[in-house]
Amino acid sequence: MSTPYMPVIIYCENRHVWNGSLQKVHELLRMGDLAAFVGIVDDGGFAESARRRGVSASTLSRSVTRLEEQLNVTLLRRTTRSIEITPEGAAVLAEAREILDRSESLQEIATSGQAPAGPLRVNAPVPYVLHVLAPRLPEFRAQYPDIQLSIDMTDMLVDLIGSHADVAIRLGPLPDSEMLHRPLGRTAWKLVAAPAYLDRHGWPETPADLAKLEQVRFAIPEHINTLRFANHKAPVRVSPALTAGNGEAVRQLVLNGLGIARFSDFMIAEDLRAGRLVELFPGQLDVEPLDISALYLTRVSGLRRLGVFLDWLGTIGEG
């Protein structure tokens, strides 16, 4: 007796649209059409999805039309400028994601004896990519040459589905959400300056002496500019030299002798080792280390390529 196929049901407005088997799904619905529909919704429209996929918008339109005809429902309301998903479309979308994820999981199982392969989309803060990931990625590529990494850099928390990311690396406390996460370590804060800057303006002997210097400030988040020290009730106020909206810009300005600033350890570890920067009052900053975490979605947590990437991230820690 042959093994029965797993039943799949697609619901629309509390009624069954179709009830059958994976074999019948394969016969009725094209996986490419389901993927096209999901991609159009995630990308916010036909034109953007077509650009990302390297196909024509008319090709995607035909895929959606086939789905609508086969399921006998309207999935999307289309205008010249936007799309709107119908209630039926939202129900089908959830099932389509599950079908596509199941298909990918089955492919993973079928190739379990082979090396992990396929695309993996990573989102991470700019400094983490430049100072932690980039120097070590040759090791990962050598070990897993068939994994096609795509790295997007942003310091903002992103919607993993909307940004097409499989995993996001984040610093600091995590928001309440349904996303899974894996701790990757912690990074301490350090207050630093260029030796030449201190030679010109004076080397501080106590934290209070910092008031005689100038600070290169972060535009956001503002709290990074606050300098609190153990055994000091109030923060030390330092006049701003200038402000930059990017952590790497702040670092370059400090390296060029424009003031002092505090950074996550991994951002300036090489600079300290090379003597380009010096740490001021080691161990005296009164600020909690930053947690480093990898966030990912339940629906992709079983992918082998994601699993090996998360394991590798755990080995490199905070750099």
Rank of each mutant, 00 (worst) to 15 (best):
A110F: 10
T79L: 06
R30H: 06
L130C: 09
L272E: 07
L258A: 05
D33V: 00
L184A: 04
P135Q: 04
F140I: 05
T226H: 10
T187V: 10
R228E: 11
S82A: 15
P183V: 02
L133D: 00
G185L: 02
R237V: 15
C12G: 14
L22D: 08
D311Q: 11
R52H: 09
Q215K: 03
M179V: 02
V158E: 04
D209V: 00
S63Q: 09
Y144R: 06
G162D: 10
M153P: 00
L310I: 14
G257L: 07
I268F: 09
L106T: 09
L280R: 00
E69L: 14
I260V: 15
E288A: 10
V122W: 02
G45L: 04
S301H: 06
N123R: 14
T206Q: 12
A165Q: 06
A244G: 01
R81I: 02
G45T: 07
P127S: 04
A208D: 12
V64K: 06
D265V: 03
E27R: 12
L295I: 04
L133V: 09
P195M: 13
Q70G: 08
I9T: 12
I10N: 05
D43K: 00
V167T: 05
V129L: 11
P87E: 09
M1T: 08
L130E: 14
L137S: 05
D159M: 07
S49T: 10
V192A: 04
I10T: 09
P87I: 00
R52G: 06
L106Y: 09
G202K: 02
L242G: 08
L191R: 05
V41F: 03
P125E: 02
V126N: 13
T65Q: 13
F229D: 00
N19P: 14
T79Y: 10
D159P: 09
F281P: 01
E214Q: 15
L160V: 01
A241K: 01
A90E: 14
N231L: 15
E214M: 07
K212N: 07
A269V: 08
F266R: 01
Q252R: 07
T187N: 03
D43Y: 03
T65D: 11
G259L: 03
S105R: 10
P207S: 02
S177Y: 08
S112E: 15
L71V: 05
T79A: 15
T59Y: 11
R186S: 12
P175R: 11
L106H: 07
L28V: 10
E270P: 00
P145N: 14
M1Y: 04
A47D: 10
P221W: 11
Y128R: 06
L100D: 02
T80I: 12
R66K: 11
L93S: 06
A241E: 07
F229M: 08
V254P: 05
A94G: 11
L290V: 08
G275I: 13
P125V: 08
M153N: 09
F281G: 01
L180V: 06
E98G: 04
N246D: 15
V167N: 04
A208M: 10
I83N: 03
T74F: 01
N14W: 08
N19Y: 13
R251H: 13
R78W: 06
R102K: 03
D286L: 13
R182N: 12
I316H: 01
G20A: 03
